[in-house]
Design a protein around this nucleic acid. Structure first.
Length: 313
DNA sequence: CGCGTTTGACCTGCGC
DNA sequence: GCGCAGGTCAAACGCG
């Protein structure tokens, strides 16, 4: 429960089925839902990196995406509660004015640096069984709690929505599913994935919006401390590098996502994942890429290939 | 055999 | 304190 919890959703602006790709500027007509009083300063404008560091606002993100506050598809609000961003998104997202009414025209993403909720369970599991002794159990638990809290605040969380038939969107990294839970008020379960790379603690949750089954909500947590697995460079990575979507740059400096390859998870829309790639000809992806015009994001240029950072007309 | 998924159990946090 | 929901573990299982 951190008051630093901020959420940004990136809703891939195209329909997987028809690949009805549209530039953010012409995307849905959803209204910008956030009011300044809610912690958003429309005048502020910072890099995505800053966003992930907890100093960003939705307007900034919207801008980063080339979206204007008035027509932003960024509809999420700062998450103040411990509730997973997805939950809020599922509720408010589709039922209110902020949710992109048009499935193929909504763009939303979420980031939260306060994540780490899931660490609690693991920490507990890892520690308790190992500490059968009662001696310093209390102090030990306290220490763990502290560490847990610290860790919780350190790990950025970033969620985005994607129109996709597949739940698990390929982002270039290798993930191992370690759990699945039914989500309250949703017929669709939530899957938990962990990066299989050693020493990489990045996790992600994937769930499908019950209000919009075609929408997959992916929440990343943590930062990759390694490049994209070589084994995937010939597939996902390569594809990303060649068909990265415009919105990507804003997340390029995100919480440790595939930025090493000049892209990050955010820009990975349904059509970008391997499954979809298999379903759609490469030309389609190129088409998608061409559909976007990316504004200059400054810092992001260090990470995102210039080809993806074109000035928006 | 290695790797990934499935799934029931367990733990924790939170609201009442 | 209790119940609920979320998150994680880990054994079992499947697959290439």
């Amino acid at each position: 429960m951190s008051n630093e919890h901020r959420d940004f959703y990136y809703h891939t602006p195209f329909q997987e089925d028809h690949l009805d790709v549209k530039p953010p500027s012409i995307l849905g007509s959803s209204t910008y839902n956030r009011s300044p009083g809610q912690g958003v300063d429309p005048s502020s404008y910072m890099s995505f990196t800053e966003c992930l560091h907890g100093s960003v606002d939705y307007n900034s993100l919207a801008k980063a995406f080339g979206l204007s506050p008035s027509s932003s598809e960024v509809f999420s609000s700062i998450e103040e509660s411990s509730r997973p961003v997805e939950a809020r998104d599922l509720d408010g997202g589709n039922s209110t004015d902020q949710v992109p009414a048009t499935p193929n025209s909504s763009v939303s993403f979420s980031s939260s640096e306060a994540g780490g909720d899931e660490d609690s369970g693991k920490t507990k599991k890892e520690t308790q069984p190992e500490k059968p002794e009662d001696g310093g159990e209390n102090s030990d638990k306290k220490d763990k709690a502290k560490k847990k809290a610290e860790k919780r605040q350190k790990e950025p969380r970033f969620a985005f929505m994607t129109k996709s038939e597949v739940d698990h969107l390929e982002d270039g990294y290798r993930w191992r599913k370690y759990g699945q839970k039914a989500v309250k008020n949703s017929p669709y379960p939530r899957s938990y994935y962990r990066c299989t790379t050693q020493k990489c603690t990045v996790k992600k949750r994937v769930e499908r919006s019950f209000q919009d089954p075609s929408t997959v909500i992916t929440t990343y947590e943590g930062q990759h401390n390694h490049p994209i697995p070589t084994t995937l460079r010939g597939s996902a990575s390569a594809m990303f590098s060649h068909s990265m979507l415009a919105p990507a740059p804003m997340a390029a400096s995100g919480p440790g996502f595939p930025h090493h390859q000049g892209y990050n998870f955010v820009q990975i829309p349904a059509a970008m994942n391997s499954q979809n790639m298999g379903a759609y000809p490469q030309g389609v992806n190129q088409h998608v890429h061409q559909q976007y015009q990316v504004p200059d994001y400054g810092l992001l240029q260090d990470i995102v290939p210039s080809i993806f950072l074109r000035q928006e007309p």
